[in-house]
Design a protein around this nucleic acid. Sequence first.
DNA 1: CGAATGCTTGACGGTACTCAAAGATTGTGG
DNA 2: CCACAATCTTTGAGTACCGTCAAGCATTCG
Lengths: 208, 208
Amino acid sequence: MVVPAGGTIIAQGDINPKLYTVLSGWAFRFKMLSDGRRQILNFLLPGDLIGFQGAMFDGAHHGVEALTDIELCALARSKIWELYKGHPELAFDVTWLTAHEESIVDENLLTVGRRTALEGVAMLLMQLYKRMQSLELAEGNRVDLPLSQLHIADALGLSLAHVNKTLRRLQRLGLFRLDGRHLEMINGRALQNLADYFEAPLAPRPLI
Amino acid sequence: MVVPAGGTIIAQGDINPKLYTVLSGWAFRFKMLSDGRRQILNFLLPGDLIGFQGAMFDGAHHGVEALTDIELCALARSKIWELYKGHPELAFDVTWLTAHEESIVDENLLTVGRRTALEGVAMLLMQLYKRMQSLELAEGNRVDLPLSQLHIADALGLSLAHVNKTLRRLQRLGLFRLDGRHLEMINGRALQNLADYFEAPLAPRPLI
DNA sequence: CGAATGCTTGACGGTACTCAAAGATTGTGG
DNA sequence: CCACAATCTTTGAGTACCGTCAAGCATTCG
């Protein structure tokens, strides 16, 4: 299955959302308040599961939207139970992926709650850079980064205007270069220090 | 196993943390930045798992501290795999609990990122009130609430002083009463509207 | 009864928000 | 292929929410 950039994969409130694995492309999970304020919870990259929470509860508590054109592999909801029964090692991987996603959300919560805007932007760039690297989707020190400043704002709980000013200020430090849809890392060490973010490179992830 | 109020259950960075279920009492998960800023990720109530993330990765990415005296049931880490292999329904429950915990963190991220201080305090009180109710730990419209204002501040990404002023302002609205360690709900409907938080009461949770 | 912890309040400052408008870029259809 | 729309980026002026600092009060505990 393929969803075009900007398309809705799961709508907040869907009663019976499907279950997917990301094969290629980017997406993000988000929640909205009734007056339109939006918070991006995390970004989804190849290998991540989508819609698992909806399979466990009565409905989706969050929306999922494609950031780029994205290829998904649909899994039948009814197959989950068979998987737990017949393939414990796969069931374990599902739990691993769920726990891993939570650890990302944890870090984002720390960022939004306690990091300054400057530290937050640094942390987000570093996190995505590392994730792309561990997926071997980096070309040297360059990775795709298909985010608009509005996405960054909604991920960090900031306003668009402030993200722009903060990004600008960060770039003047020369730790990285950001041309539209690519991020080129120049001084990752310094950026990590600024962000106070030193997550170890991830173990190779299980693939479902 | 019992840990006294204020005691450390898991230290951030522990290499080989144990695995527990909460039998009674409160705890919380948190992360800290190197200069001491702290973010509480979520609160743990009876039935919740502790330390599962640490079992999946190389070390704990967050700390866990007892809020009250707390009774824990320790599970051997080595037993996890056996559980997945021999008791798929229990394995499924583990995943359910993990996904449920993530949905709480998701909501907290929305709060910290996009709700105002007033909305955030309202949301936190409502969330804990509902959780206690679904655990049948409420006495009518009263529940224990063993949080200090510093805990609320660290959960919402606010300063202690501002939490105090905000709480005070909220109480003047008369939607609830807060005496030290108890919360008495007076107008839950209005508080939900204020918080824009309408999570349905939880299904009875699986117990591990 | 003193120490420690937690709560309350005020003055002041700053980070980040709102509002507004003008470029820049991209995409699209005539 | 150009023109127009839509989206995204950039910038500034003014504001406000929330943070910091500081001090006094209340409560609990040993």
